[in-house]
Amino acid sequence: MHDRPPVSKVYYRPIEAAIRWAGLLKQKIEILRLISSPRHLPTTLNFPGWAELRLCTERIYDAIFNGELPYGCNGITQNDKALWDSPDLTIRHLDLKRWMRDHYPEERPAFLFSRRERIAHPVITLETGQAMLVERQALKAELAQCRRRLQTLQEQHHVLSKQVEVIPACNECSITDRAESTYQHIIGSMLDLMLGQSPAGTPYSCFRTQEAIVSALIAHHDGIMGITERTLNGKFAQARRRMRSLTP
């Protein structure tokens, strides 16, 4: 049984650092067995995470070749190009951490950064920040549109409430099919809005179910004609069916 390699070390060979960066430390022995040159990895290999491992390796060597990442021999920093193909080529932990923080700030592999560092210093790249800003502006526009729609519905409801007050409460009074459809559209729209939420997930009202709306209406307007559980549930059901029939 092989001893498990340490996650963090004082210095690493490039392939060791790349394996840790790609999150393949448990497969280290198998990976080393499959490759003939730590610097020149096969382009393709039927191995999970191989493409990422190859990319991490190329990034490290690219930094060494371009003078961005100090290197040396067996942990001793040197500037000797003859070491580039040597199996003794190494990179110090501190140098690798500093290089990754400068050139790949969105990367925080566990072998270089502690859990506290990964949590306390989340990194948002410029591209991510711009995308978040665009999304925020879009959500603000949608919210403003929803608020305007809510205000319109509330005004319509107010007008209808006034009209209801002046309609004689008698059996001879009737409304046309067009008017009935209009009322159902308004009631259905208000129900959908009161039970809905904004694009950001914020509920438009405190009501979560139709039953809660019915209970509140009865509690505040008990005794008024039509404000009964049976009537309200019936009218609400008709209005919601009407709205569903209009949905393409």
Rank of each mutant, 00 (worst) to 15 (best):
I64P: 00
V10S: 11
L24Y: 10
A216L: 01
E58L: 05
V166N: 01
I91V: 15
I76H: 07
L83Y: 06
W21E: 07
S114P: 01
N66Y: 08
G67S: 05
D95L: 03
E229F: 03
I76N: 04
K81G: 02
C73A: 08
P38S: 14
L69R: 00
L25S: 12
R148L: 15
L160F: 05
N171M: 00
H220R: 15
L217K: 00
L32S: 01
S245D: 15
Q27C: 03
R118Y: 04
M1G: 13
I29Q: 06
R59N: 08
A144K: 11
E135F: 06
R118A: 05
I175Q: 13
Q156W: 06
L34N: 05
F113Q: 09
G196W: 06
T182D: 07
A131H: 06
C206W: 02
T44K: 02
S215V: 11
I218H: 00
L139S: 03
I60C: 05
P6G: 06
C73V: 06
S181K: 05
R178F: 03
I60K: 02
L24K: 05
I31D: 14
N233Y: 06
H221P: 00
L34G: 00
N79D: 14
G201K: 04
L232E: 07
G196Q: 10
V7R: 15
R116D: 07
P105R: 04
H40I: 05
F113H: 05
H121I: 04
A141E: 11
L55K: 15
L53V: 01
H221Q: 12
R208K: 11
V214H: 02
T44D: 10
Q197H: 12
H2W: 08
D80S: 12
P248K: 15
R54V: 03
S36I: 06
I167N: 04
A138S: 08
Q27Y: 09
M132A: 14
L45F: 03
V164N: 11
Y71V: 01
K81D: 12
H220T: 15
E180C: 03
A138T: 06
Y12G: 07
A131N: 10
Q27G: 01
R115W: 02
E58N: 08
Q27F: 01
R108V: 00
T152A: 09
R115D: 09
W99E: 08
R118M: 08
W50E: 04
H221S: 12
P168A: 15
P87T: 14
I91H: 04
V134A: 14
C73G: 00
P168T: 12
S174G: 02
P14E: 05
P199G: 07
L126A: 12
R116K: 08
A120D: 12
T43S: 10
C73W: 06
Y183A: 09
I119P: 00
W99A: 06
G223V: 12
F111I: 01
A110L: 03
V214P: 02
A17M: 03
V10Q: 10
H157F: 10
D80A: 02
H157G: 14
D85K: 08
R4E: 03
A239E: 07
Q197E: 14
P14S: 11
A237G: 07
L53D: 10
